[in-house]
Design a protein around this nucleic acid. Structure first.
Lengths: 212, 212
DNA sequence: GTCTATAGGATGATAGAC
DNA sequence: GTCTATCATCCTATAGAC
């Protein structure tokens, strides 16, 4: 699926000396995550990537829009990987969700509250205007939900309830990271983690259906 | 606090024939909500408001940045009003939160998924770059949390737990609205409403502390 | 307070040499 | 594939007449 112009002996995408296209996508992902679609210039991306403007348009003939879609997909895959990694390392779903919030809080603090969700800023500024970007973002959310839902089902929660809970988890993580970033305070994320854990524990015990 | 150039007999800010400054702030709020800070031009704002560029800089000598702060504050007040109105009309906090999600879903659908949270897009695109806007957005979130916390305390939830729950509610609403807008589907909001209601019901019964 | 005109710079995108 | 030069357009902000 990915066009590699350089021979890759290991057959994997390592970080070592990434190709030009790869550097452009990475730079676009980081910059648009921080500044949004309209706030990020192609010239800025090319400089940050150590490439020229010509190279950008060589790899992305569709221009800024095509590049933004690639950047969102990249952010999608990155967070999906982190999510899977954390979830696999925790004993249960409640602990796993708390661990994710802690990881997000660390990432925010380490970047001085600059690096939030890798798709939100790009998607939000282009909401009813650039459908390709919107679709890529929507697909990212759906994928993350699927990962969380799988974990919940593996823990014994019924199919339908797991899907609802997973949606709730992803939405809350999204909102809590946003709130933490804007207020430059990790508390929203930590509180969200605790409350989500409470909710998951409740479902694990099969208690208190929604209507009561 | 507000400079009114026109005589206002009722002593209130009615919608009838709003002054130029008011029209500019409204247009800026709507446009930045949809397109973000960098995606919205001052010229576009002035046209939408039926004002000239000179008028915009007359009322907002600080330029785009000052105007964006006013727009975010306006969005803050508007949603705070809606929130208070809905919360007052519901019998309990669980029903109230569900009613809010339904209202948000209706607003999204009615605008063809264009009008999401009135502060998120503006704040997110300017995150570590324009502190004044960030502070206005942070203050908005804090205010909404306060409104929700007051409702929860009035329902008998202890001070500290009410604060945490209110933070959770606002974060989840934020994330669910974002998710619903991006996926053009109201389900994230409705699921979030149900799950938040479950969580609130749990707190009302004093059950299942976070650590268990 | 309202309006027009314009300065000064940045933007997305293209052309074409190498 | 890489690079530079350039076009046409847009932007924020200002100046100054009315």
């Amino acid at each position: 699926m990915k066009t590699r112009t350089r021979h890759d002996p290991a057959g994997q995408d390592q970080d070592a000396t990434p190709g030009t296209r790869e550097r452009i996508v990475r730079a676009a992902s980081v910059l648009m995550q921080r500044q949004g679609y309209d706030g990020t210039g192609i010239k800025q991306i090319s400089q940050e990537a150590g490439a020229t403007l010509g190279s950008v348009y060589h790899f992305f003939p569709g221009g800024k829009q095509e590049l933004a879609v690639a950047a969102v997909r990249r952010g999608d895959e990155e967070f999906a990987g982190i999510l899977r990694e954390i979830l696999d390392g925790e004993p249960g779903p409640a602990e796993a969700v708390v661990a994710v919030t802690r990881s997000l809080a660390e990432g925010l603090r380490a970047s001085d509250w600059l690096d939030g969700c890798p798709v939100t800023a790009t998607a939000l500024g282009t909401a009813g205007r650039l459908p390709d970007i919107q679709r890529a973002a929507s697909s990212a959310f759906a994928g993350w939900e699927g990962i969380v839902a799988e974990m919940l089902r593996a823990a014994g929660i019924a199919e339908e309830e797991a899907a609802d809970l997973a949606g709730m988890v992803v939405c809350t993580l999204e909102g809590a990271e946003l709130s933490a970033q804007v207020s430059r305070d990790e508390r929203p994320l930590l509180v969200a983690g605790e409350q989500l854990a409470r909710l998951i524990a409740l479902s694990l015990r099969g208690g208190l259906p929604a209507g009561s």
